[in-house]
């Protein structure tokens, strides 16, 4: 899509984060084009939350982090929206007070947009934030981030506490925002199906390192999947194998298609989920 735009909206290079003297992220490098919706995938503890927190300026980091072409910091903060895991908000404030605080703390705040989204989500203004159901609180947290009118939106597991109806509503809200404003979104999740159809880019983390990063179509096109019997195993020699998973009397193999995949097997285009699972299993093996 916008891969031909030279300057990415978000760029990390040799990005590392240490927590309590232990290195949690190692040399993370990726670029997100303007208007891209990126799935940040990985198992629990892979470093998704740490990466987002560091990108939001909540953790010190080493290496390069450029947002909208500028080094991260106070200058770009008004243009970055962040929603933390479990929707951190002041529990003692009411919904209305939370919105007022957002209006005072953000120069680009859009009260009209906030009002529209609050009404659509059916949030009561007088309700205390601490009394909201987790799903409702998450929606308020996302509304706070959207009313800030961000150019880059960082979301940590936004769908986790939502019921199925709220999930589709939130997906609709986010995608409408992308359509209308060209917002660049980075969205952490560990449920691949949740972001299917929403995301056009992927950053896959394993053990604090990037396993895969880029456009989803390119990533899927760059891999092939085959099922074979044990007798076909030799056919994999010379292929750039990501994972071979043995099954009953056979195997499933995922290979990168730098060289053409071996002809002896019937190769198929993997789904994003198959691709992601293969990388994650191979990384933890």
């Amino acid at each position: 899509m916008s891969d031909d735009v030279p300057r990415p909206a978000v760029l990390t290079h040799s990005f590392s984060v240490e927590r309590h003297g232990r290195r949690v992220l190692h040399d993370v490098s990726f670029a997100l084009p303007f208007g891209a919706v990126t799935a940040l995938l990985g198992r629990n503890g892979a470093g998704k939350t740490t990466l987002l927190r560091a990108m939001a300026g909540l953790l010190p980091h080493r290496g390069t982090l450029e947002i909208l072409g500028r080094p991260s910091g106070d200058e770009v903060r008004p243009r970055v929206g962040y929603v933390g895991q479990h929707a951190p908000l002041y529990r003692t404030l009411s919904v209305a007070e939370t919105l007022r605080a957002g209006a005072r703390l953000n120069p680009r705040w859009s009260a009209a947009h906030a009002k529209r989204l609050v009404d659509a989500a059916g949030l009561r203004r007088s309700a205390r934030v601490g009394r909201l159901a987790p799903g409702q609180r998450m929606r308020l947290a996302v509304i706070m981030a959207l009313a800030k009118r961000p150019d880059v939106l960082l979301l940590d597991e936004p769908f986790a506490p939502l019921d199925p109806v709220a999930r589709t509503e939130l997906a609709g809200t986010l995608m409408a925002e992308v359509a209308a404003e060209g917002t660049t979104v980075l969205l952490a999740t560990h449920v691949v199906a949740e972001v299917d159809g929403m995301c056009d880019h992927v950053v896959l983390l394993g053990g604090g390192r990037v396993l895969l990063a880029g456009g989803i179509d390119e990533a899927v096109d760059g891999h092939r999947l085959a099922v074979g019997d044990d007798t076909d195993r030799a056919a994999l020699a010379g292929a750039d194998v990501v994972e071979v998973r043995p099954g009953s009397g056979g195997f499933t193999a995922l290979v990168r298609t730098g060289p053409p995949p071996p002809a002896a097997l019937t190769w198929q285009r993997p789904s994003l989920e198959e691709l992601v699972l293969a990388y994650l299993r191979e990384d933890s093996a």
């Binding site: 909540l58 951190p88 953000n106």
Partner: peptide
């Protein structure tokens, strides 16, 4: 404790 720092420090006000 309540991780509200993650909210307020990601608004537009410098820490």
């Amino acid at each position: 404790d309540e991780d509200t720092a993650a909210f307020v420090l990601t608004q537009s006000v410098p820490a």
